[in-house]
C-alpha cells in the first residue's frame, strides 16, 4: 500500500486528544497526513519500520513527531530516548506535548535532546492555538533536516 508520506507522527493514547489535535491541524490546513500511535511500542514500531510497519521505509521518516509522555507500554521518555539515540531517527524533530509540568520531565526531555516541550493547555482555545502554532512553525517555518541524513549506506 503506497500510503502518502506521513508528515506527523502523533503519539497519543487519548483518542480524544488525538482527535482534537488532528481536528486543529486539519482545520488550519496544516497537515493531512497524520499517523496516530496509541502507545510507545507502536510509535517505535512505526519509526523503526518493524512489526506491523515492517514494510515502511526508514528513508521516509515523518517530518515531525508529537509525543505525549504518559503512554501505555513504553512511556514517552523511553520513546524519546530511543528516537534520539538512533542515528536514523535522531534528526527528526520531536515535540513533547504533555499535561505534565513536572520539572523532572522537563529536565529529562531536554537532556535526551527534545526539540520542543509544550504543556498541553487545559483550555481548549489555548490548546488549539498551541497546536496551530506548532504546526505552522514546524511544518512551514522550520527548515526540515536534509534528506541525506536519512540515507545511510
Amino acid at each position: 500500500m503506497a500510503a502518502p508520506e506521513v508528515e506527523i507522527l502523533l503519539v497519543e493514547d487519548s483518542p480524544e486528544d488525538a482527535e482534537l489535535t488532528i481536528h486543529t491541524l486539519r482545520h488550519h490546513r496544516l497537515s493531512n497526513h497524520i499517523h496516530v500511535a496509541e502507545d510507545g511500542a507502536q510509535a517505535l514500531d512505526f519509526l523503526f519500520c518493524r512489526g506491523a510497519y515492517s514494510d515502511r521505509s526508514p528513508e521516509h521518516p515523518p517530518r515531525l513527531i508529537m509525543l505525549d509522555l504518559k503512554l501505555p507500554k513504553v512511556d514517552g521518555l523511553e520513546v524519546l530516548q530511543a528516537i534520539k539515540g538512533n542515528v536514523w531517527t535522531q534528526p527528526i524533530p520531536v515535540i513533547v506535548l504533555t499535561s505534565s509540568k513536572e520539572e523532572f520531565d522537563l529536565m529529562k526531555c531536554y537532556q535526551l535532546g527534545v526539540n520542543s516541550y509544550i504543556q498541553k493547555p487545559v483550555d481548549f482555545s489555548q490548546f488549539q492555538n498551541v497546536i496551530r502554532q506548532l504546526g505552522m512553525y514546524w511544518l512551514l517555518v522550520n527548515q526540515p533536516p536534509p534528506s541525506e541524513l536519512f540515507h545511510h549506506s
Binding site: 480524544e16 482534537l20 481548549f124 490548546f127 488549539q128
Partner: peptide
C-alpha cells in the same frame, strides 16, 4: 489532578468545536 486535565480539555474542546 493531572489525569483530570485531559477530560476537561476534551469537554471544552468538543464543546468549542
Amino acid at each position: 489532578a493531572h489525569d483530570l486535565r485531559a477530560p476537561l480539555r476534551h469537554m471544552s474542546g468538543f464543546a468549542r468545536i
